[in-house]
Amino acid sequence: MATAPPLTRDVAGLATLLATSGVVHLVRPDVYEGMVPHVLPRKRALVYVSGVAEIACAAGLLHPATRRVAGWASAAVLVAVFPANVQMSVDHGRRAARRGDASSRASFAATLGRLPLQWPLVRTALRAAGR
Rank of each mutant, 00 (worst) to 15 (best):
T8C: 09
R9S: 12
D10S: 11
V11Q: 01
V11G: 01
G13H: 09
L14A: 05
T20V: 14
S21G: 15
V23E: 08
H25M: 08
L26F: 02
L26I: 04
V27M: 06
V27L: 14
D30K: 13
D30T: 10
D30W: 07
Y32Q: 11
Y32C: 06
Y32S: 14
E33K: 11
M35K: 11
P37F: 05
H38P: 07
P41G: 07
P41F: 14
K43P: 05
A45E: 13
L46G: 15
L46V: 02
Y48K: 11
Y48F: 15
Y48T: 13
S50L: 06
S50Y: 13
G51A: 07
G51P: 05
V52N: 09
C57M: 05
C57A: 15
C57F: 07
L61S: 06
P64M: 09
P64E: 11
A65Q: 10
R68E: 12
A73P: 09
A73F: 12
V77Y: 01
L78G: 02
V79N: 01
A80R: 01
V81T: 10
F82K: 02
F82D: 03
N85H: 10
V86C: 04
V86I: 15
Q87P: 01
D91N: 12
D91C: 04
H92C: 12
R94H: 11
A96D: 04
A97G: 10
R98G: 02
R99V: 09
D101N: 08
S103C: 03
S104F: 09
S104D: 14
S104L: 03
S104H: 08
A106S: 13
A109D: 09
L115Q: 08
L117F: 13
Q118L: 06
Q118P: 01
L121D: 00
V122L: 06
T124L: 00
T124R: 00
T124H: 00
A125F: 06
A128M: 01
G130H: 10
G130Q: 04
